[in-house]
Design a protein around this nucleic acid. Structure first.
Length: 151
DNA sequence: GCCAACGTTGGC
DNA sequence: GCCAACGTTGGC
């Protein structure tokens, strides 16, 4: 069992969008960074939990908890020439990008980036690292529990 | 809108 | 394989 943090711009896809989906489940498509892809493809397992993090918005921070509901599979948007995530170098035989499905466990209060920074016990979090641009990153069990206690 | 950070691309 | 140029992320 591993813990994660997954970023999404709420203008594009928010925790409320996820709450409105059938079965509160959605494929996490559009990741186009190899390190983030590798986390999904190689390390995420059904049952893992992740914080749903709102980024590039007035109040960045954790807005919900999701469960990884299936193993990674080829991201369909890479094959769709009409999609902004289209990748002409990807083929059905050799897909380049993968996604998992995520299911909303619950919305949380907004646990802001500012508050994350203010907690000494959370100082180790990757999301707080200067220059970090990963959209998917691991969270330690210790960090996870510390945040859950404060939600 | 700015800009630091850093991943990707492509010429060589 | 190097590395400069370029593009993107994301907080502010």
């Amino acid at each position: 069992m591993h813990f994660w943090l997954m970023k999404s711009e709420p203008d594009v896809f928010s925790v409320d969008h996820l709450a409105a989906r059938p079965n509160r489940t959605e494929p996490w498509t559009g990741v186009r960074n190899y390190q983030a892809r590798n986390f999904m493809r190689d390390e995420m397992r059904p049952g893992d939990l992740a914080f749903f993090y709102h980024s590039s918005c007035p109040e960045p921070g954790i807005a919900g908890i999701v469960r990884i509901s299936g193993r990674a599979y080829a991201d369909a948007t890479q094959f769709d020439s009409a999609s902004e995530y289209y990748d002409p170098k990807a083929t059905r035989d050799h897909p380049r990008w993968f996604n998992v499905d995520v299911t909303l466990v619950r919305k949380t209060r907004l646990f802001s980036l500012q508050e994350l920074r203010s907690r000494p016990e959370l100082a180790s979090m990757l999301v707080l690292k200067r220059g970090n641009r990963l959209s998917i990153m691991p969270v330690s069990q210790r960090e996870w529990r510390a945040i859950e206690r404060l939600l």
